[in-house]
C-alpha cells in the first residue's frame, strides 16, 4: 500500500536524521538503558508471529524475541513488538526503529552485506513451494507451465520463482500483491492457479485462511533454500553475540534434554557442562555482559528449541509441521550449537 512506501520514505528520513545510531556497543547499551527490546515481527503469520485471541503475540519468531529479552532482563515480557511489512523491515532495522528483526527473513548474501545486516543462526530451515487447488489435479511443479501465480511483493520468492521457471523453460504470469491478506484472497478466489511462498508459510495460510484446508495441496517440490534467521544491524558486535548465543542456548538445552519443566531439577545435575550452561558454575554470562543465570531464565520462561517449535508450528499447533531438517543434528537435522564453554 502507498502508506507503506510513505513509511519507507519516512524511515529513510529517520536514517538521515538519526546521527550515530549505529556506533559500536550502542545498541546493547541503548536497549539496556531503555529497559525493553524493540523487536520487529511479521504483521500476522500464524505459527511465526501473530496476536492470539487475547491480543498477546505468539509464534516461533516472537518466542525468539522473548528469549532475547529474558537473557538480557530476566523477564520474557520486556519486549515491544513492532509489526513490519516486508517492505519496511530492513529500513526499520537499519534506522534503529527496532533492535532485532525476527520476522521469517531469509538469510542471503546481499542482505548480509549490502543491506548492512548480521544474521544470527537460522531458527527455521525452510524452502519455497507451491500450493494449488486439489481439484486442478496437479501432481508436480513441472506441470505449472502457463499458470497464473500469486506472490507477495518484497520477498526472495519472486526471484526464486523466476529462476525456477527459466531453468525449466516454462512461462508463468505473476500477480504481485503487497499485503499478505490480499495475496491470499486473490488465490482463494481463483484469480491465480498457484500460490507460492515458503512451505511453512503455505501451511500456515492453508490452516488459517483457506475456506476449506482439505481442498488445497502443497506440491512436493522445494525450489529454494530459505534459512529464516533473526537479524541485527551492523555496528554492535556485543548485541550480535547476545542474539546469536540466545538462539544457540535454546538448541543446546534441547540437546542436553533440558526443558522448561525439567530445568529446575537440572540445576542439581552433576554434569559439569549442564552446570556451566545453567550458570551453576559461573562463566557463560560474564563474557556476554549479562547475568550468569541467563540460560536458566530463557529455558524456564520460554523453553528450549524443541518446545518452541512444537508449540508454535509443530504437532501441538494447527500447522502440524514435521521437524524435518529442523531436528537437532543428533537426530539427522541441521540444528547445531557450538559448545558453551
Amino acid at each position: 500500500m502507498r502508506r507503506e512506501w510513505v513509511a519507507a520514505a519516512w524511515t529513510v528520513l529517520t536514517l538521515a536524521m538519526a546521527s550515530g545510531v549505529a556506533q559500536a556497543g550502542t545498541t546493547f547499551d541503548a536497549v539496556k538503558a531503555r529497559g525493553f527490546v524493540q523487536c520487529g515481527t511479521n504483521v500476522g503469520l500464524a505459527g511465526f508471529s501473530s496476536p492470539d485471541s487475547n491480543g498477546r503475540w505468539t509464534g516461533l519468531d516472537v518466542d525468539i524475541c522473548r528469549a532475547v529479552a529474558t537473557a538480557l532482563f530476566g523477564d520474557a515480557e520486556k519486549v515491544k513488538f513492532i509489526p513490519l511489512s516486508t517492505q519496511q523491515r530492513f529500513t526499520a532495522l537499519q534506522s534503529g526503529e527496532v533492535d532485532l528483526l525476527s520476522r521469517n527473513t531469509t538469510w542471503t548474501l546481499t542482505r548480509d552485506t549490502e543491506n548492512g545486516l548480521h544474521f544470527a543462526p537460522a531458527t527455521f530451515y525452510d524452502g519455497q513451494g507451491f500450493m494449488v487447488a486439489k481439484k486442478a489435479g496437479i501432481k508436480s511443479a513441472l506441470e505449472l507451465d502457463g499458470a497464473s501465480i500469486c506472490v507477495q511483493t518484497g520477498t526472495t520468492t519472486e526471484l526464486n520463482l523466476s529462476d525456477y521457471f527459466r531453468s525449466h523453460k516454462m512461462t508463468f504470469q505473476s500477480v504481485v500483491i503487497e499485503a499478505l491478506s490480499e495475496v491470499n484472497h486473490a488465490f482463494f478466489s481463483g484469480r491465480c492457479d498457484v500460490l507460492t511462498s515458503d512451505t511453512s508459510q503455505l501451511a500456515s495460510i492453508r490452516a488459517a485462511d483457506a475456506p476449506n484446508p482439505d481442498d488445497y495441496v502443497i506440491l512436493p517440490e522445494l525450489i529454494s533454500k530459505e534459512p529464516l534467521a533473526p537479524a541485527v544491524r551492523h555496528g554492535d558486535d556485543q548485541w550480535f553475540d547476545l542474539v546469536r548465543w540466545v538462539v544457540f542456548a535454546t538448541l543446546e538445552a534441547e540437546e542436553r534434554g533440558i526443558t522448561s519443566k525439567t530445568v529446575d531439577a537440572a540445576l542439581t545435575s552433576p554434569d559439569p557442562t549442564v552446570q556451566r550452561l545453567l550458570g551453576v558454575q559461573p562463566g557463560v554470562g560474564h563474557s556476554l555482559g549479562i547475568d550468569d543465570k541467563w540460560v536458566y531464565n530463557v529455558i524456564k520462561q520460554v523453553g528450549n528449541y524443541g518446545e518452541i517449535f512444537q508449540r508454535n508450528v509443530g504437532k501441538e499447533s494447527p500447522l502440524k509441521l514435521d521437524r524435518g531438517v529442523n531436528a537437532l543434528w543428533t537426530q539427522g537435522g541441521l540444528m547445531y550449537s557450538p559448545p558453551f564453554r
Binding site: N115, C150, E178
Partner: peptide, 25 residues
C-alpha cells in the same frame, strides 16, 4: 495505489527492486 491490488506499476516494480537490492533511498 496499484500495489495494493497487484498491478505492476512503477511503484510496484521499484518496491520489488528496493527489496531485492536493499537500496531504499
Amino acid at each position: 495505489l496499484a500495489v495494493a491490488i497487484g498491478y505492476p506499476d512503477v511503484v510496484s516494480v521499484l518496491d520489488t527492486t528496493i527489496n531485492q537490492t536493499g537500496q531504499a533511498i
